[in-house]
């Protein structure tokens, strides 16, 4: 049986897909977004986290059966509300084998992932095949800028997004609005272009940057070093509505 490392389970996660959902946070992420608000999700292994003077391990190993049972516990409420489970992270695709096994065990439940899309095509397709809904992050379209702010180039992400668009699966695209970084008209135009003709696209969500992002860094012994102006009001360019894409600003 596969085991994985998770660092949180959130009940009644209201922003992670339809209905009442439980969101599972898988540990480990290949990206290092400068604005990351879950820094404890970056490292793959469990690590100490100090909160309100108390240190405990953040992240623990769990096998696929136990995790599936934890999710299934709330099957009645998922059924009643048209909800289900969402896997996020970190980046859930980092633990693709574990994730696939858990997803298999949860057949019959509405399953979603939230992903940055940075994974091998094979893993992406494998997981895509097993889920009912995808929340896909598109941070920056320009690859060089993407590398500067997230640590990786985005060719793979674009390829996987293309697979997603072609799959017909219902999905949502999420763009974190980072003031002065990606909130330009140019980037929004480019984002909208990537989504042209995607049948499954439900809407685009622009997530306003929150200053609280830095709060958790000291808890895991890290330093928050944004090089953008945290207090600036992000620009909002709606390049989506004109292309018949529903837009939601959160």
């Amino acid at each position: 049986m596969q085991t994985g490392v998770i660092f949180s389970i959130e009940e009644f996660a209201v922003n992670d897909g339809p209905g009442i959902r439980t969101t599972i946070f898988l540990k480990g992420c290949p990206l290092r977004c400068m604005w990351c608000h879950n820094p404890e999700g970056q490292k793959a292994a469990p690590q100490p986290l100090t909160k309100q003077g108390r240190t405990e391990m953040c992240g623990y190993t769990i096998d696929s059966e136990a995790l599936a049972a934890r999710v299934r516990k709330d099957e009645d409420i998922f059924r009643d509300s048209g909800g289900g489970v969402t896997f996020t992270g970190g980046e859930p695709l980092v633990q693709a084998d574990f994730l696939c096994e858990v997803l298999d065990r949860l057949e019959g439940i509405h399953r979603a992932i939230e992903t940055c899309g940075y994974a091998s095509e094979e893993n992406f397709k494998r997981v895509l095949d097993k889920v009912d809904y995808v929340l896909f992050d598109v941070k920056i379209v320009d690859s060089a800028l993407h590398k500067r702010y997230t640590g990786v180039e985005n060719e793979l992400i674009k390829t996987n997004l293309k697979h997603l668009c072609e799959s017909g699966k219902p999905f949502v695209v999420r763009v974190p609005l980072i003031p002065g970084v990606n909130d330009t008209r140019e980037n929004m135009e480019a984002t909208a272009e990537l989504l042209k003709g995607a049948k499954g696209l439900q809407r685009v969500e622009l997530l306003r940057y929150h200053k609280t992002a830095g709060a958790k860094y000291p808890m895991v012994g890290m330093e928050y070093k944004p090089d953008f102006d945290e207090d600036a009001v992000p620009e909002i360019h709606d390049t989506f509505t004109e292309r018949d894409i529903k837009l939601l600003i959160l």
Binding site: V14, I20, I77, G83, L250
Partner: peptide, 21 residues
């Protein structure tokens, strides 16, 4: 903050209904 998204109202309604059920 959960109410930043208007859809939360319906979800909360379903949560309350679950409590009753």
């Amino acid at each position: 903050s959960i109410f930043r998204n208007e859809e939360t109202i319906e979800k909360l309604a379903m949560l309350i209904r679950s409590f009753i059920r």
